[in-house]
C-alpha cells in the first residue's frame, strides 16, 4: 500500500477536462505492465485514483486522466516536474495474444479509448498476426475526441478501418453522427472469427457487446473493461466487488460471458 515516487515528465492537454501525463520513476520503476492494466495514482495529501495505463515511452508511463472528482482534479493539476505516488500495475490485460489469427473489432467510447490505445498500438506492431482491424470510436461531441492525430495514423495502416462518430454535432462536422454501435453496420465481419474489445461507459459497453453478439461474435470472444470504486487495488478493501469478482484483481478486463450476468443485475 506504499507507493513508488514518480515525477511528471510530460503533460499534454487532450481535451478541456482531460490530460495525458507522462510519468517517469524517481526511484526504482514499477514492474512491467500490459495493455488493459491500471495504476493507482496518489496525489500528495489528497488521495489515490485508479487510472488505466494509456501507453508508455521507455520508462515513462502515460496516463490519460479526465478531471471528474477531487482525486483526478489533484492529479490533473500536477505540473511538469511535480511528484506523485504510483502503485501498480494492477488487474487483467486485454486478450490481444488470444485474438491472434482473428479479425478484430474495437469499440471505444469517450475516455474509454485511453485504456484501449496501448492494445491498439500492440495490435499494429504485430499487424501480421491479425486479420482486418476495425476501430470504432464514439464521443459526445467532435471536440471530445481523443488522440485524433494518432487515429488518423492508425487509419493509414493496411487493413485498418477507423470509423469515428459523435452523439451530437453542429453541421460543421462532416463525420458520422450517431451512437458508436451504429458504426457496426459499416463493418463487414464474420462473427465466428472476430475478437471484440469494448471500453467506455458501462451502458455503452453493454450495447457494444450486444452489437457484436448480434453479428455472431461469441460473448467469450469479447473483452470489456469494467469500472468500480477502488481503494486498495489488491482485492483486500472490498469496494470493487461485483458478484464474486474483485474488479481490481480479476478485472478490469473481463470476457463478456463472465461480465454480462454481473452487469445485468441492478445494484450488483
Amino acid at each position: 500500500m506504499v507507493p513508488t515516487r514518480y515525477r511528471v515528465a510530460t503533460k499534454r492537454q487532450e481535451l478541456t477536462d482531460t490530460w495525458t501525463l507522462g510519468l517517469e520513476p524517481v526511484d526504482e520503476p514499477l514492474e512491467p505492465w500490459s495493455p488493459g492494466q491500471f495504476n493507482m495514482l496518489w496525489a500528495f495529501g489528497v488521495g489515490e485514483v485508479a487510472i488505466s495505463i494509456s501507453g508508455s515511452e521507455d520508462d515513462t508511463l502515460l496516463h490519460t486522466v479526465r478531471r471528474v472528482g477531487a482525486g483526478t482534479e489533484a492529479v490533473c493539476a500536477l505540473a511538469e516536474g511535480e511528484m506523485l505516488g504510483l502503485r501498480g500495475p494492477f488487474g487483467s490485460r486485454w486478450r490481444t495474444v488470444e485474438a491472434r489469427g482473428k479479425d478484430v473489432v474495437i469499440l471505444a467510447g469517450g475516455i474509454g479509448l485511453a485504456p484501449l490505445r496501448p492494445a491498439i498500438r500492440q495490435l499494429l506492431l504485430d499487424r501480421g498476426s491479425y486479420g482486418r482491424i476495425s476501430i470504432l470510436v464514439g464521443a459526445r461531441h467532435p471536440e471530445d475526441l481523443l488522440f485524433v492525430e494518432e487515429m488518423s495514423r492508425w487509419a493509414e495502416s493496411p487493413g485498418v478501418d477507423v470509423e469515428i462518430t459523435v452523439d451530437t454535432a453542429s453541421s460543421g462536422w462532416s463525420g458520422h453522427v450517431g451512437v458508436v454501435t451504429s458504426l457496426m453496420d459499416r463493418v463487414e465481419i464474420d462473427g465466428s472469427s472476430v475478437h471484440g474489445f469494448a471500453c467506455g461507459p458501462e451502458v455503452m459497453m453493454r450495447f457494444a457487446a450486444k452489437a457484436l453478439t448480434d453479428r455472431g461474435v461469441a460473448p467469450t470472444a469479447i473483452d470489456v473493461s469494467l469500472e468500480r470504486n477502488m481503494k486498495c487495488a489488491i482485492a483486500q478493501c472490498g469496494h470493487c466487488q461485483l458478484g464474486p469478482t474483485f474488479v481490481c484483481r480479476d478485472g478490469p478486463v473481463l470476457d463478456y460471458a463472465t461480465a454480462q450476468p454481473l452487469m445485468m443485475v441492478r445494484e450488483r
Binding site: M1, W42, F44, G45, V46, G47, E48, K231, C232, Q236, C237, G238, H239
Partner: peptide, 26 residues
C-alpha cells in the same frame, strides 16, 4: 468482515501527509 477504506490527512502547513486505512462497511 475485512473491508476498509483509506483516508488522507495533511498537516495545516501542507508539509506532511499521512495515509490511513480504516474499517469500512458495505
Amino acid at each position: 468482515c475485512f473491508c476498509s477504506t483509506v483516508e488522507d490527512l495533511t498537516t495545516l502547513d501542507g508539509q506532511r501527509a499521512q495515509r490511513w486505512q480504516r474499517w469500512d462497511s458495505c
